[in-house]
């Protein structure tokens, strides 16, 4: 492992490092590594929901199947929204690194708008499915579908609230070390959600539509 020397002007980082013993690693790395572990455990949780869905995808109990329910155009638009928001989130990280407030707010706004559009489309799809009788209680397939896709949607909703809170923090506390760490964690979270969505549209919407 290579060792580099970094200049860190923040006193609390130094005290935290000495308080926890001999750790020479900066708080930024420790925090994001911990968050990385959390994200991986979150993905393990998603894998259980994926396994449940894959097992139950044919258990329609005489109800509507995926091929009858899914609208690929809607899914394509949702995918485009989430991918674009992942990209604008990356641009936001760049703006934060170069300490540009205006660009940070702009890209945060774009990320929020695209994520919000994704969520709105998904909720509309859910409302439509429930309206035509394809509610979670209809069959094991639909229960697994709503659990898996709904859980991802819930993560996106939490991410949107997190982004709002972060923008308020940027407004009040500028780019302090703590705010910057949280923004880095947010970016990780947002990109990880996009990875989950890649598997979701592949397994649920594309493979499911062919069954």
């Amino acid at each position: 492992m290579t060792i580099t020397v970094a200049h860190d002007g923040h006193v609390q980082d130094h005290t935290a490092a000495t308080a926890t013993g001999v750790s020479p690693v900066s708080k930024r790395i420790v925090v994001t590594y911990g968050f990385w572990i959390f994200l991986l455990s979150d993905i393990v949780m998603f894998s259980a929901l994926f396994a449940a869905y894959a097992t139950l995808s044919r258990a329609t109990a005489g109800g509507p199947s995926g091929a009858q329910l899914f609208d690929q155009v809607g899914v394509a638009i949702e995918t485009a929204c989430l991918l674009a928001s992942s990209f604008t989130c990356g641009l936001m990280s760049l703006a934060i690194d170069s300490r540009r407030f205006g660009a940070t707010y702009l890209y945060a706004l774009l990320t929020f708008a695209l994520g919000g559009a994704f969520l709105a489309l998904e909720l509309r799809e859910f409302a439509h499915m429930i309206a035509i009788g394809a509610a979670p209680q209809r069959s094991a397939f639909l229960s697994a579908f709503f659990a898996l896709v709904g859980c991802h949607g819930l993560h996106v909703a939490v991410g949107l609230i997190w982004l709002l809170v972060m923008m308020v923090q940027v407004k009040i506390r500028r780019f302090s070390a703590a705010v910057e760490r949280r923004l880095l964690c947010f970016a990780l979270f947002w990109h990880a959600l996009d990875i989950v969505w890649v598997w979701l549209f592949t397994v649920v919407y594309l493979i499911g539509a062919n069954q």
Partner: peptide
């Protein structure tokens, strides 16, 4: 004040310019 730092934060683009990170994205 200098502290030793090793390791790489996940999600951190590292010591590269804004322009090349933009190209990566």
């Amino acid at each position: 004040m200098t502290i030793m730092q090793y390791g790489h934060a996940p999600g951190d683009a590292g010591e590269v310019s804004t322009r090349s990170t933009l190209i990566i994205y």
